[in-house]
């Protein structure tokens, strides 16, 4: 009788070869098949210890498979394809809107400054002080823009990590996607579904379009 204290070399070698051939982690069923195959080739009686190791390996394979299915059910593909692109688009829209608003505030401040230069004191000094305050306050646009850029970079980093996760999970993700879409029942939009917040500029209806839409509903 040979006590098994280390993984059996034949089993290790067979598992590595199968993993290399598949190019991805093996499923629980595949691991179990290989274990059966290797045990079948063993000579002599299989000891109680062998069986215990086999059972533990099988339990481990079941646990890994279950974890893969649970992670796939979270739909990491949806996070990559839907949630992260939406978040970055929203942040880009914030940067664009604040840049536009700041530009218009500065336009007005510069015009006030020009008018102030034609006035006598103390009005001129008072107006220039106020305009200076506006210029100083507009610093925020640079700072918020840089902060938002940092958040976008972090989101891109998360996206890369999720890509790796999706590749590792492979078919489980595809199965979870099909399952989720098959079980999605069409339902009428609730009040909550209507709360989408501001639309991105490219997708938003302008006031003219809203007016036409309303007129069409009369």
């Amino acid at each position: 009788m040979t006590a098994i204290t280390q993984p059996d070399p034949a089993l290790t070698s067979r598992l590595e070869a199968a993993r290399a051939e598949a190019g991805q982690p093996l499923s629980r069923e595949e691991v179990a098949d290989i274990i059966r195959e290797v045990i079948g080739t063993m000579e002599g009686d299989i000891s109680a210890l062998d069986l215990q190791v086999y059972n533990e390996l099988e339990a481990l394979a079941r646990y890994i498979q279950s974890a893969r299915v649970e992670i796939a059910a979270i739909r990491p593909d949806e996070i990559r394809e839907d949630h992260i692109p939406k978040a970055t688009d929203e942040l880009d829209a914030v940067v664009g809107a604040t840049e536009d608003a700041t530009g218009r505030i500065l336009d007005a401040a510069e015009q006030i400054q020009t008018i102030a230069e034609g006035l006598d004191q103390p009005a001129q000094g008072q107006l220039i002080d106020l305009v200076t305050g506006i210029f100083e306050a507009c610093n925020f646009q640079d700072i918020t823009g840089q902060r938002i850029s940092k958040v976008v970079r972090t989101l891109k980093h998360i996206e890369t990590k999720i890509d790796v996760l999706i590749q590792a999970l492979g078919e489980e993700v595809e199965r979870a996607k099909i399952h989720s879409e098959a079980n999605r029942e069409p339902k009428p939009a609730s009040d909550e579904d209507l709360l989408n917040g501001p639309q991105l500029p490219a997708a938003a209806n302008g006031q003219d379009e809203i007016d036409r839409l309303l007129a069409g509903l009369d």
Binding site: T102, G103, L106, A109, Q113, E136, Q141, D142
Partner: peptide
């Protein structure tokens, strides 16, 4: 020198003052 046009305008205006 700044890559934010807004910041260039702010600095220019403050320098002018």
């Amino acid at each position: 020198v700044d890559d934010y046009k807004t910041m260039l305008r702010i600095i220019r205006n403050l320098l002018k003052q």
